[in-house]
C-alpha cells in the first residue's frame, strides 16, 4: 500500500466527524503519526464550525449525522463550501460509512466528497486513503467501483465514444473501475494496464467527476431498485 511518492514532511491535518465517540477513538488509535487530528465533531453544525475554524486538509466524514437539514454528511460538505486550508487548497472530504446504501453514498459523493470507504476498512488502508484524498485524488472502494460500473451501464458494455461524455465511462475508465472492483490497489491497476499510478489516479478522478456531474439521474434509483449497494 505504500506509495512511491516523496514522503510528506508535514503531517496531514485531519478532522474527525462521527456521532459515535467509540468509533472516533477507534480511528484515532489506528492512524499513525503522519496524521494530526486537529478537531472532532459529532453533528452537522459543530462539524461545520470545527472545519471553518481549523481548516484541515482532510475531513473524515460519517455519512449519517444528526443536525443540519437532515442530510447528514452532505450538509457538512455544502455548509463548508469555499473553506480552504492555510495554503489555499480546498478542504477535502472522505466519506466513511457503515451503510452501503446507494442513496447515502451517492448523495455524499455528489455533494463533493472525494471518496468513500466503509467503516470496516483497516488502519493502513484508511491511512493511504486519507493521504490520497489529501493529494486531491479520489478514493474508490471496490463496492463503489462496482456501483459505478453498474450505474453507468459499463457492465452491460456501454462505453463512451469520447472521453468527455458525462453519462458513460470511457474504455480505459471502465478497465480501471473493473480492476478496482476486483480488489486491485492503484499500483496493481497501473501495473496491469501498463500505465503510471498517476494515470490511474487521473482516470479515477475523472470517474468521480462524472459521478458528481452526470445528469444520469436514474443512477441512484436504478441502483437502489436492484439493491446494488
Amino acid at each position: 500500500m505504500s506509495e512511491p511518492r516523496s514522503p510528506q514532511p508535514a503531517p496531514i491535518r485531519l478532522v474527525l466527524v462521527d456521532d459515535h465517540r467509540m468509533f472516533r477513538s477507534g480511528v484515532k488509535a489506528e492512524l499513525d503519526e503522519s496524521m494530526l487530528i486537529v478537531g472532532e465533531a459529532a453533528d452537522v453544525d459543530s462539524a461545520i464550525a470545527v472545519v471553518a475554524q481549523t481548516r484541515p486538509d482532510v475531513v473524515l466524514l460519517d455519512v449519517h449525522l444528526p443536525g443540519g437539514n437532515g442530510n447528514g454528511g452532505s450538509d457538512v460538505i455544502s455548509g463548508s463550501g469555499g473553506v480552504t486550508t492555510e495554503s489555499g487548497v480546498p478542504v477535502r472530504f472522505l466519506a466513511l460509512s457503515v451503510s452501503d446504501s446507494a442513496e447515502d453514498v451517492i448523495a455524499v459523493i455528489r455533494a463533493g466528497a472525494r471518496g468513500y470507504v466503509t467503516k470496516t476498512i483497516n488502519g493502513p488502508d484508511l491511512t493511504s486513503a486519507i493521504r490520497r484524498v489529501a493529494d486531491g485524488d479520489a478514493v474508490f472502494s471496490p463496492r463503489l467501483a462496482g456501483f459505478v460500473l453498474d450505474a453507468f451501464g459499463a457492465a452491460a458494455g456501454e462505453v463512451a465514444v469520447i472521453d468527455e461524455e458525462l453519462d458513460r465511462l470511457s474504455t480505459r475508465e471502465r478497465e480501471v473501475m473493473r480492476l478496482i472492483a476486483r480488489g486491485y490497489q492503484y499500483k496493481e491497476v497501473a501495473k496491469e494496464l501498463f500505465i503510471s499510478i498517476k494515470t490511474v489516479e487521473t482516470h479515477v478522478s475523472s470517474v468521480l467527476r462524472k459521478l458528481q456531474l452526470s445528469s444520469r439521474h436514474e443512477l441512484t434509483a436504478w441502483a437502489v431498485g436492484r439493491h446494488l449497494l
Binding site: 471496490p142 457492465a155 458494455g157 480488489g183
Partner: peptide, 12 residues
C-alpha cells in the same frame, strides 16, 4: 485476507 470477489454479469 483481504479476499475480493467480483462478478460481472454482462449481456454476452
Amino acid at each position: 485476507a483481504p479476499v475480493s470477489a467480483y462478478v460481472e454479469v454482462g449481456s454476452e
